[in-house]
Design a protein around this nucleic acid. Sequence first.
DNA 1: ATGCGTTGTGCAATCGTTTGCAAGCCAATT
DNA 2: AATTGGCTTGCAAACGATTGCACAACGCAT
Lengths: 330, 330
Amino acid sequence: MTDIARLAGVSTSTVSRALAGNPLIPGPLREQIVALAAAHGYVINQSARSLRRQKTDTVGLVIPLGHEAGQLISDPFFLEMVGRLSDEITLRDHAVLLHRVVATQPGWLDRLIGAHRVDGLLVIGQSDQHQTLNAVAAHYAPLVVWGGHLPDQAYCTVGVDNVGGARMAVEHLIRTGRRNIAFLGVPQAPEVALRHEGYRRALSDAGISASEALSAPAHFTTETAYDAMRSLIASGVAFDGVFAASDVIALAAVRALKADGRSVPQDVSVVGFDDSSVARYGDPPLTTVRQDLETAARVMVDLLFRRMAGERTPSSTLAPELILRASSSR
Amino acid sequence: MTDIARLAGVSTSTVSRALAGNPLIPGPLREQIVALAAAHGYVINQSARSLRRQKTDTVGLVIPLGHEAGQLISDPFFLEMVGRLSDEITLRDHAVLLHRVVATQPGWLDRLIGAHRVDGLLVIGQSDQHQTLNAVAAHYAPLVVWGGHLPDQAYCTVGVDNVGGARMAVEHLIRTGRRNIAFLGVPQAPEVALRHEGYRRALSDAGISASEALSAPAHFTTETAYDAMRSLIASGVAFDGVFAASDVIALAAVRALKADGRSVPQDVSVVGFDDSSVARYGDPPLTTVRQDLETAARVMVDLLFRRMAGERTPSSTLAPELILRASSSR
DNA sequence: ATGCGTTGTGCAATCGTTTGCAAGCCAATT
DNA sequence: AATTGGCTTGCAAACGATTGCACAACGCAT
């Protein structure tokens, strides 16, 4: 900047103001300086700018992998969410800092915040970090979390009605004559716990007793889901329907069922959750509970920016939609 | 930091050194300061640190969307790549800054670099920015690009042998008796152009003349791919095989074919490219050319870090693998 | 007591911006 | 001619770390 100032015959203050579009600097001079900077390929150093302004124009995107066995960001739903959120954040002229948090030592979130690299935080999925999030929300406002809505929750969430969505899925299975319906998912993550709750309620409303033996713990990865389905089959318990906590789990389950010689949906109806890209192209195409990611991302980013501006915003719950496809019989 | 220094009864220099694990500070004192910092939730301000050290411990992940009609990061292959690269970068204690570059005004890459927010850049896909990349590589070394290997290329790339991979795909189609093979993809992106080249060579080696009428322009999005397939069908040209430049395109093509009453693979064999997550679960599961993303990500990050350390590394080409599934007949 | 390493610490400059405050300039008013 | 006020512009102080250099303290040999 010093160079540009010398070239333009003014001080760095003037250059700084000109580049910031400050109306104190008269139009012609401002344009001349901007042109000069462009010609010399000068770009403002963001570290210095951030330090001085105490803001970074950057949003942190956090993917907690606390309860996951796998080490990587693999679920297509999460990845689509990353894409959607990035688009939305970029639209607002902010940069995106991606954080993949796996070894969740206590204080990881505070450290993220303390580093002052971001002006706000978007957390994709609560994982098993509900307490941490609650504690942090007490002193850090610009934080929006994608996930389930819990009763004792102090932070701002956006998410679909998981209980209602699960209910729609299971009621659909019951309506099409299924009685022994299995659940696939680990309830550590609140979203999954809520989906399990919806599953139980739908069953009990229909007068069906939910057997514990019908729930198998499957993480959000193909491998554990496949294994969970295999061991459910091996356990010998009878079932004619499966409600999975995600599409990836559902598709892995379909694969395991086929490997066992059962056909979908004739022998077993399968319903997933998310309606991520894989669901539509699945074999068979997957009946699933759609979460509208485009809206979700827009709402999350909107809430975050309002929080960054000092507003206190409430949580927001979106309506899920049941998408009927071939993996469940009519 | 001043506070911690006061509390510990030392100067900020000492605190800085203690926190950095500098052996100048004797063990016991160092531990005491570290403990004090932890107890007070003190975290080093990264803007200040970056400014002073002139490095950010951050890698930029760039997704150029120059030639794409759509506005967002949607292709699952790109997203999987983002996930894989993030994992690999995090493993090396660096942060990830995600850049989605859509309106590619000239100089966008220089502006990215000039802002000094990252120590190195990973570009996912050349898009139509080959010239830009070439120009920048002349003065900016820490840059690794995923994409096709071009003859006049000054920057470091990692990518599969696109010509060879496409050849394998098309030869497989020919071997199984297909003669009229269509190509789906826009050749603006070098990867796609190279795949088209492999397609042409395989045909001419088999003594089949490649008709221009068999190539349809499809972008990396479901919609344009679907439309491209529909208009190819509408054009009335006869074909019994399709080689698509990506899995997303291939699956959209399958959908369009089914909508027209043709069955896959009986009437038309379809082969994709990428082996992204959707391919395996497709209906029917997709024969495709696999790009090993795990290796790819590791190689890219490894090369980038060597370049950041000052080494001059050459480009690297990975071997593609043909994955046979049900979308093509044997 | 002096000299000389060795070790541990702090001073102060520096990284590249932004911005409050003051001052210079010029025209208009008294 | 002096005062006022509006525009422009620059000075210099932050922002919060890191680090070269100097110096203090200490033990030990002379």
